[in-house]
């Protein structure tokens, strides 16, 4: 792969051995789809808050046009002085050393918060703003943390050094998994939406649409409704998929066990919850 001149200069200027560092597992960019396909396809995010999260824990992003899964090569698509406006606009970030970058970026964290989403297991991904800043911060972090034991004091100090203010969108697992079970139902054409008030703010309830009727449900009512749906559903392929995803994703298994344990006990429909 050809690395562009701007990125090569960046690696040279900051003494980053990108070929060596690219071999490290941490250089791999994760996406929601890889980590949890249900959340990628049916994720409901109904709250956000400002928090501090270390770049060490932000392990990727969702950007379908960028196919390169290694950050040391993917950066090539984000910085290019003769490229598109998107590739040119943050080019100055390449000049900042790891010692000065946090200070240089400080004001931008408030003015244009980096937006991330949280996935189960304290995993974070860039969701909708801050990709250029993330790329540079993450590469500096990976260079500095190379060879450190993750339980060491030095690694912990580094994690703290790379803590940044972010706007964190939280995935609501109950609504997400309910959305999956309803939207993928084999017989009934459910559509689930978040209810908004007059100021376009989430109320906490959902609107469930079926056969041109709408039902407004809180979380408990949603679970009760879903329980009735599952009890009255017979399609074995539908339940095989639920079991498969339960094996694959611990948080989904917990959701099913907490609410519809009979589905995994193979006596689906025999008992209400």
């Amino acid at each position: 792969m050809v690395i562009n001149r701007d990125v090569l200069n960046f690696f040279e200027m900051h003494d980053i051995d990108f070929k060596e560092l690219a071999l490290n597992d941490n250089s791999r960019i994760s996406s929601t789809k890889e980590l949890n396909k249900i959340i990628a396809d049916y994720g409901i995010h109904d709250s956000e808050k400002d928090e501090e999260v270390s770049v060490a824990d932000i392990i990727g992003y969702n950007f379908f046009e960028n196919q390169n899964k290694n950050i040391f090569y993917a950066i090539n698509d984000f910085f290019k002085s003769n490229g598109s406006r998107y590739q040119q606009r943050s080019i100055e970030l390449l000049n900042y050393s790891s010692d000065e970058i946090m200070n240089k970026l400080g004001p931008s964290f408030k003015e244009q918060p980096i937006c991330i989403e949280e996935l189960p297991g304290n995993k974070y991904l860039i969701s909708s703003n801050g990709l250029h800043r993330y790329m540079i911060l993450r590469i500096h972090f990976l260079k500095e943390s190379n060879g450190l034991d993750k339980d060491s004091k030095e690694y912990m100090e580094l994690k703290t050094k790379y803590k940044i203010p972010v706007r964190l969108k939280k995935v609501n697992l109950i609504k997400t998994y309910a959305n999956y079970l309803l939207s993928s139902h084999p017989e009934l054409g459910f559509n689930l939406k978040l209810e908004l008030n007059d100021n376009y703010e989430h109320t906490g309830k959902v609107i469930l649409e079926l056969n041109n009727k709408q039902y407004i449900l809180d979380t408990d009512e949603l679970i009760d409704y879903l329980n009735d749906v599952l009890i009255n559903t017979q399609d074995p392929k539908y339940f095989d998929l639920i079991k498969m995803y339960s094996e694959r994703y611990e948080s989904f298994k917990t959701f099913i066990n907490n609410n519809f344990a009979y589905v995994l006990r193979n006596d689906k429909g025999a008992k209400a919850k």
Binding site: D41, Y42, T176, N179, S183, N191, Y200
Partner: peptide, 15 residues
């Protein structure tokens, strides 16, 4: 990213 700039609010995700 553009939708965020114009204060878009998430209402659903399907497939």
């Amino acid at each position: 990213k553009i939708v965020l700039e114009v204060k878009g609010v998430h209402i659903s995700t399907n497939n």
